[in-house]
Design a protein around this nucleic acid. Structure first.
Length: 581
RNA sequence: CGAGGUGUAGCGCAGUUUGGUAGCGCGUUUGGUUCGGGACCAAAAGGUCGCAGGUUCAAAUCCUGUCACCUCGACCA
């Protein structure tokens, strides 16, 4: 490709609405253009990147016996009603009506379509196991898209669905897929991706993992242990609280705490450690507005996902009315009217001999509250968010760290949720009917592209790994108006193409500054600079985008050197790729 | 959905308070001079000022409505 005919323009200035680096650089670099909130068109450079990412994904999915299929984008609501998700999924599912009044949905994920495709075929155990996948457009009507390609409404996703006749077979396959994912991310040159345990939500005890790129701009919160291998999404991370040293029991005493409605205020006013306070966080059930009072150690926060999973109900932060009898800011377990309320006590309160808690009376708290003595027996549950420096649930050391990440993929042991709901059955060896056990596996292609950019860029532009770079080499011709540099540039361009190197030739007559800044925005790993100055010595310059290599080579050896460098850069990436299992 | 903000040339912005010929920088076109990190000179093209109503002799500017986008929340199979 010649730069002079490449569609798209590169900007010097950062677009006003870009808040994260990858977004700004990809807009500035002529990779994409916004069409609507969370909806983008891609220019050729971005499309070339996503095609390479897709090729890597295809190769790895095929290697674990995946079969590529293609589902429709527009699906009949009927299928989603069958699985029950037509009503259970919120507004992210875009619902439409066709001219005959038929109800349709835009596919945001394709479990239903997958079951529909194979349920007639796979009626015998002999057809199992198998995996089907597609790489296709998804639409999710996100409440708020942001961050360029990181969080969009329309996006390309690889989604795979596997079908098994036993849990152990699913688990075996799940491990292969886990490894395939590790290979995909490292082949794409994405280094800081880790797999974390994720919340399996209402699905019940199933295992799922999210593949996270560690970065401060990530919207997900992760809990990692620096001592052992424990890694989990905050939503799924157990919290263990150490209350040793807090077991001293004191007398229960009512004390005035005028206008002290927050834990910080109360702790300061009464001069106690916030670890010896008990706070109440109030929610309401979406179903009937019943109040849910969560009691938790004052310094901790409620993990709403855990609460939601524990209650098996949707909840929302409460609006506290006067009739409720709840005294906001002064809620305590002692002498609390629990009628019509659900009480949840977090395990962080276990073992505290005496604590400060609300007195259910405006401007009063108790000190010396003891759970067993002053309230009675309770079932402690884990509802709190894990914290930095917290205790690792695996190794028991206080070495938890909290970090941010972008979810670039996930793998999920689905179980029989969809096969049951949609009546997919097979006959086993004994002639008995069963629902197949499913797994599903997703990767956001555009998000991965943006994530690599986020992970690998400098202030001038992206630094694409050679495995996904839009082109492998770029020739910058300085003084393309002069015959010699122009001729050498063209000659190298032809030679490199014949040598199988994807090459972008910048043949435009521009100043060096312009050429280099635009080349930086293209982020192509190998750059060949052809200039009158070097040509005097019969040389061209060979540099890598990351500046690790900068050297001169004779014109006659340039193409060969580029091929060698290309191979070395690929080899470097391949060295980090784990073997298949 | 809540709070805040912004809509003026391809991009970045000024002008709006106090109504009076539509501006600047980058980019684009043409000609010339430059030439290793976003050069310079000259000339030029490009805008129903988001949209619709209203007030006025006169509206980018004031009023009403509406749409879009951005940020922070809520939400996220």
């Amino acid at each position: 490709m010649k730069m002079s005919v490449l569609v798209g323009e590169r900007y010097k200035e950062k677009p006003a609405d870009c808040t994260i680096e990858s977004h700004a650089l990809m807009v500035r670099g002529g990779y994409m253009k916004q069409v609507n909130t969370g909806v983008y068109s891609l220019f050729t450079p971005a499309r070339r990147i996503t095609r390479k990412i897709e090729a890597i994904i295809r190769a790895e999915m095929d290697a674990i016996d995946g079969q590529e299929v293609l589902f429709p984008v527009v699906l009949p609501a009927e299928l989603w009603k069958e699985s029950g998700r037509y009503t259970s999924v919120g507004k992210e599912l875009l619902r439409l009506t066709d001219r005959f009044g038929g109800e349709l949905v835009l596919g945001m994920t394709h479990e239903e379509a997958a079951v529909h495709l194979v349920r007639d075929y796979a009626q015998s155990y002999s057809k199992y196991p198998f995996m089907i996948y597609q790489i296709q457009t998804k639409y999710r009507d996100e409440a708020r898209a942001r961050g360029g390609l990181i969080r969009v409404r329309e996006f390309t996703m690889k989604d795979a669905y596997s079908f098994h006749t036993s849990q152990s077979d699913l688990e075996t396959y799940y491990k292969r897929c886990y490894r395939a994912y590790e290979r995909i991310f490292s082949r794409a040159g994405c280094k800081n991706v880790i797999a974390v345990l994720s919340d399996s939500g209402m699905m019940g005890g199933n295992i799922s993992h999210e593949f996270m790129l560690l970065t401060d701009i990530g919207e997900d919160t992760l809990v990692l242990c620096s001592h052992c291998d424990f890694k989990a999404n905050l939503e799924a991370a157990a919290n263990i609280t150490d209350n040793t040293g807090l077991s001293k029991v004191e007398a229960l005493t009512l004390v005035p705490t005028p206008h002290m409605a927050t834990i910080e205020d109360v702790a300061r006013y009464l001069k106690v450690d916030s670890r010896q306070t008990c706070k109440a966080v109030v929610y309401q059930k979406n179903s009937n507005d019943e109040y849910v009072l969560v009691f938790i150690r004052g310094d901790l926060e409620v993990n709403e996902t855990k609460l939601h999973n524990y209650l098996r109900e949707e909840i929302h932060p409460a609006i506290i009315t006067e009739e409720s009898g709840i005294i906001a800011g002064f809620i305590g377990l002692h002498e609390l009217n629990t009628h019509g309320k659900t009480i949840v006590v977090d395990q962080s309160l276990e073992g505290i001999g005496s604590m400060v808690c609300g007195a259910n009376k405006v401007d009063f708290h108790y000190i010396g509250f003891n759970m067993d003595r002053d309230y009675g027996e309770v079932t402690y549950v884990d509802i709190a968010k894990a914290v930095s420096g917290g205790i690792c649930p695996i190794c028991g050391k206080p070495t938890l760290q909290v970090k941010n990440g972008i979810e670039v993929g996930n793998i999920f042991q689905l179980g029989t949720k969809y096969s049951k709901a949609m009546s997919m059955q097979y006959l086993d060896e004994n002639g008995e009917l069963h629902n197949p056990i499913m797994g599903c596996y997703g990767i956001g292609v555009g998000r991965l592209c943006a994530s690599v950019c986020e992970e690998s860029h400098d202030s001038y532009g992206p630094i694409w790994p050679i495995s996904i770079a839009p082109w492998e080499a770029q020739i910058c011709v300085l003084r393309a108006d002069q015959p010699e540099p122009s001729a050498v540039g063209n000659m190298l361009y032809e030679t490199l193409q014949h040598a199988g190197v994807e090459t972008l030739l910048d043949d435009r007559i521009l100043s060096a500054g312009n050429l280099f800044s635009e080349a930086d925005l293209m982020g192509i790993p190998i750059r060949i600079v052809v200039s009158p100055r070097n040509l005097k010595e019969g040389m061209v310059e060979l540099v890598t985008r990351d500046k690790r290599i900068e050297r001169k080579v004779p014109v006659s050896e340039a193409a060969e050197a580029v091929v060698a460098l290309k191979n070395e850069l690929f080899a470097e990436i391949n060295r980090s790729v784990l073997p298949e299992v």
